[in-house]
Design a protein around this nucleic acid. Structure first.
Lengths: 116, 116
DNA sequence: TGAACATATAAGCATATGCTGATATGCTAT
DNA sequence: ATAGCATATCAGCATATGCTTATATGTTCA
């Protein structure tokens, strides 16, 4: 591999790792591994503002880790399987404990898709 | 897994990922995957101060990713295979391009173990 | 069209991070 | 002991990051 290509690659890898190096974003990505989620669900799960959630998602989208899919007034996020970092991300998520009980907690509260 | 244990686990994982989310530290870890290195070698490889190198290594050591091994006045760093994050780290490093040419560049300059 | 809801963006703040230069500590060998 | 080298730590600075509140944009539906 070219020196310059390596430089770019390690830069890209470190950028992705930095993004995953935030507890909230890492939990988001783990949730997205198994679920499509909309912003308001994340708002119900994490105890931070809608604005903060939106900013996290933008960062993840800016580097192509997630993609969005608008359905009416909701925007559903999912992992972007076409990302050239997708494989690495999957490997990493294997080491992250499932966050599904957070979604189940939402459901128990009757807040799944709280925006509906 | 207990909710509390999950919380701790994701916290630990995100901390490790944050550490690897720095270009310099990621390259260091990739080098340490195959080589033992001392501080002065890193100083020769990266264009930052000895102080900065030392601080990066301390962070990596504080979470147990690397260990140190003093040999006389040098301290050689290596990956800590006993870390409970070791397996995840190895998986991640598979996606990072080899940095060995940086060591070879050092050798060409006659600077391998520049401190000797 | 306008009200209601979902999401995004802007501005500002507190804290974290990475770096440098200066200095301290630790080891070796004379 | 002391000089010389390797490494660690301290203090301070500039920038990055994550959050909040306020506001803007986009969509649906009456």
């Amino acid at each position: 591999m070219e020196v310059r290509a390596k430089e770019l690659e390690i830069e890209k890898a470190s950028m992705v790792l930095k993004l995953l190096g935030d507890k909230t974003r890492l939990a988001m990505m783990k949730l997205l591994e198994k679920n499509e989620c909309c912003v308001c669900e994340f708002v119900g799960i994490f105890h931070i503002s809608q604005s903060a959630i939106s900013q996290h998602l933008r960062k993840l989208r800016d580097v192509g880790l997630v993609k969005e899919n608008r359905k009416g007034q909701w925007i559903f996020y999912s992992l972007n399987k076409d990302s050239d970092m997708y494989e690495m991300v999957l490997h990493i998520l294997e080491f992250v404990p499932s966050q599904d009980e957070r979604i189940q907690a939402l459901e128990k509260q009757g807040l799944r898709i709280s925006c509906q």
